[in-house]
Amino acid sequence: MALFKLAFATAAAYGLYRYMTRDQKVQRAAFADGEASGGPVEVRNAGPEGMRSDPPQWDKVDEASDESFPASDPPAIPRAS
């Protein structure tokens, strides 16, 4: 009987918690506002526009690296002729 009381108290507490936090907006650390897809796998758009904070510098190598993630190989860096 004590186990049922504990289970009921836990379920009631969880339900109350979910009710109290239902309207809070979830913000992901790496995503700009409106970027999170909400699916099981969240992927943001490439580039500084998809980031929450703007990087101090952004060049072609940074762009290529960001676009290639999560690839297993790093992007190729073009050599100057």
Rank of each mutant, 00 (worst) to 15 (best):
A80H: 13
P70Y: 07
M20Q: 15
W58F: 04
D62N: 09
A71D: 12
A64E: 05
A7R: 06
S65K: 11
G38S: 01
A29Y: 15
S81D: 08
G50N: 03
L3P: 05
A80D: 14
A71T: 09
D62R: 02
D33C: 05
A32Y: 02
R22Y: 07
F8N: 05
E63A: 12
F4D: 14
A46L: 03
S37A: 14
Q27P: 03
A30C: 08
A29Q: 15
E63V: 00
R52Q: 06
R52P: 04
A80N: 15
A9V: 10
A32C: 04
S65Q: 07
T21P: 00
K5H: 13
Y17P: 05
L6K: 13
A12E: 01
A9W: 12
V26A: 09
E67F: 00
D73Q: 13
A9M: 10
F31V: 00
M51T: 03
F69Y: 13
P40T: 08
Q57P: 04
R52H: 11
W58N: 03
E63P: 04
S53V: 08
S68D: 11
V26R: 07
M51H: 08
P56H: 07
V41S: 07
G34P: 05
A9Q: 12
A9P: 06
P74C: 06
R18K: 14
L3C: 09
Y19V: 13
A64K: 01
K5N: 13
T10A: 15
L3F: 07
M51V: 05
G34D: 05
R44W: 02
Q24Y: 09
T21D: 10
T10S: 13
T21V: 10
R44N: 04
I77L: 05
D59H: 01
Y17D: 08
D73N: 12
P70C: 01
P74S: 08
S37Q: 14
F4E: 15
A9D: 14
G39C: 11
A46D: 03
Q27L: 08
S65F: 11
I77C: 01
A2Y: 12
S37M: 11
G50P: 02
S81P: 14
P74N: 08
P78E: 06
L16P: 00
R18C: 13
A46C: 12
S72T: 14
A32V: 00
F31N: 03
A12N: 00
D66C: 02
E67L: 08
V43D: 04
A30T: 05
D73C: 10
K25L: 11
P56I: 10
A64I: 02
D59P: 02
S37Y: 12
P70G: 05
D59T: 00
K5T: 11
A29P: 11
A36L: 01
Q27T: 11
R44F: 02
A2M: 12
A36R: 04
F4C: 11
V61N: 06
